[in-house]
């Protein structure tokens, strides 16, 4: 950017801090700010000037799980012996990593195990196929694996090695419809072992129209509103069926 006009720089800095500089202009300004000290200084001046507007708000105490998650995440970003991250330019705040690669072996194992369990219990065992692997960001093992029959009537959830339970919380499974309509609850996830359940017609329809599923952390017993209220800890692709 070639703008050298201090008035223009200052006006852009003000709207950047205010939040009304948006879209590509915002990203461009962010890059400019990180490269040019005189731009950065104007941003800082506006941050100082305006911060009082937000400092007036009454404080709100975060839920306990927020810190637990932060602690997990910083434990991963502080590799021993590596150069301190602080000496490098900070990377932009990362969006959630996309869904982790399928742990194919685990899914296969889950499906086999599930298939066997169902075979014992039922006269006509429906064939269970991998549906999704639910892994939290950065974890090496999935928290759950999901399997379902070809009709998507029966769903099986198997707790994996990556799952750590937070006391007093339930974990709810959601189908995220591709058409943009609201997530549909598929019920609570087991906290140990394996659980089978039959989907209702509306759940089944929602799942058929969803290429993604998600897990949210909810108060014990599940979402009180019928929509995700807690943080969404996992978003995973549903395995596409031919």
């Amino acid at each position: 950017m070639k703008h050298d006009d201090p008035k223009l720089i200052d006006a852009l800095a003000a709207e950047y801090v205010l939040g009304t500089l948006n879209g590509r202009a915002r990203r461009r300004f962010e890059r400019w700010r990180s490269k040019e000290w005189h731009v950065e200084r104007r941003v800082q001046a506006w941050e100082e000037r305006l911060s009082g507007l937000a400092l007036r708000l009454p404080p709100m105490r975060p839920s306990p799980h927020v810190w637990t998650q932060i602690e997990k995440r910083i434990a991963r970003t502080a590799p021993r012996g590596a150069a301190p991250a602080a000496s490098r330019p900070a990377p932009p705040v990362q969006k959630r990593a996309p869904w982790q690669a399928i742990a194919a072996g685990l899914v296969l194992f889950a499906v086999l195990l599930g298939g066997y369990a169902l075979y014992r219990d039922s006269a006509e065992p429906p064939q269970m196929l991998a549906l999704a692997t639910l892994t939290t960001e950065g974890a090496s093992q999935p928290s759950w694996t999901l399997a379902a029959d070809t009709e998507l009537r029966h769903v099986r959830a198997i707790v994996g090695g990556g799952f750590t339970r937070e006391a007093g919380k339930s974990y709810e499974l959601w189908a995220i419809p591709d058409n943009g309509s609201a997530p549909v609850s598929l019920g609570l996830m087991p906290v140990e072992g394996t659980e089978d359940r039959e989907l209702t017609d509306s759940q089944r329809t929602a799942l058929q129209g969803a290429s993604k599923v998600a897990i949210s952390v909810e108060p014990e017993g599940g979402s009180p509103t019928g929509a995700p209220t807690g943080p969404v800890i996992i978003v995973a692709d549903r395995v596409k069926r031919a």
Partner: peptide, 10 residues
């Protein structure tokens, strides 16, 4: 808010 504190840390 989690992202914010991870960012502050970094």
């Amino acid at each position: 808010l989690q992202d914010v504190f991870v960012s502050i840390w970094q």
